[in-house]
Nucleic acid binder design. Structure first.
Lengths: 107, 107
DNA sequence: TGGCTACATATAGAGAGCCTACATGTAGGC
DNA sequence: GCCTACATGTAGGCTCTCTATATGTAGCCA
C-alpha cells in the first residue's frame, strides 16, 4: 500500500476503528491490520502522532490504564468525533465516485 | 475536495486523461474538471510540476506546438506510462476495497 | 488606446502528514 | 541472559499539493 494513497484518509480509518469500542494505540494498529485482511500495516510513527492530533481536534478522548503491568492510553470517540466520522464516510463515497469516474469513464 | 485526499492519486488521474488523446496542460485541467462533473478543479501549480515529474519518470512524453499564436506543450502517454496506468487502476481498486472494508465493516 | 478575460506555462515557497529510525520500558518464554 | 511481543513516544526527512506570483498572447469591448 503506497503511503501517499493513505493521505487524508487516515483520520477516517482511525475514527472508524474506535467507533464501537475504545482501543489503545497498539490495539488500533492490530485492528486496522485485521479489518483490512493484512493490507494495512500502519507504523507506530504514524498512528501515535495521528491519535494525538485527533484528540487535539476534539474527535477523540483518551485515558491511561494499566493492564498486566503495561500502561495503555485508551482512546474513545467523542460526539464531535462521531459527527466527523459520518462526514468522512460521506466524503469517502463521493471521493471514490469522482476518482473512479475519471479513472474509468464509461463513454 | 480535500487536497490531501488526492495525494498519490494525481498521477493516475493525469495519465488516465491523456490515455486516448495527447493533451496540453491547460486542456488536461479542463478534462479533469469535465470528467469529474466539476468536482475536480486542480490548480496549475499542481498540474504543471506533476506533468514534468511524470515525464521525468518516463510515463509521459511532451512536444511543443504553436496553436493560434499560443505555445502549448502537449503530453502523450508512453508505453511505460500505459503500463503504469494499468498498475494504478489495479491499485485503485484494491485501495478502495481495503479502505471501504475498514470504514464500513459488515460484521 | 486601454482594460479585461480566456488561454497557456512555469517556479518559489509554504504547509501538512506519513514515514524511518530511534529511544524507552514491561512481561514472559527459553 | 536474550529474544519476542506488548506498548508509547519523538525527531527529522521526504514528498506532494497548494497559494501566490510571474510572464506572455489573443480577442473583445468601450
Amino acid at each position: 500500500m503506497n503511503p501517499d494513497a493513505l493521505r487524508g484518509h487516515m483520520d477516517a480509518l482511525l475514527l472508524s476503528v474506535v467507533e464501537h469500542e475504545p482501543l489503545h494505540g497498539y490495539a488500533i494498529i492490530e485492528a486496522l491490520r485485521d479489518r483490512s485482511g493484512g493490507a494495512l500495516d500502519v507504523p507506530t510513527g504514524t498512528v501515535y502522532p495521528a491519535l494525538r492530533r485527533l484528540e487535539r481536534a476534539g474527535f477523540l478522548a483518551s485515558e491511561w490504564a494499566t493492564v498486566g503491568g503495561r500502561k495503555r492510553r485508551t482512546y474513545r470517540l467523542t460526539d464531535s468525533g462521531r459527527a466527523e466520522l459520518a462526514g468522512e464516510r460521506t466524503a469517502w463515497t463521493s471521493f471514490t465516485s469522482v476518482i473512479g469516474r475519471v479513472l474509468n469513464p464509461q463513454t
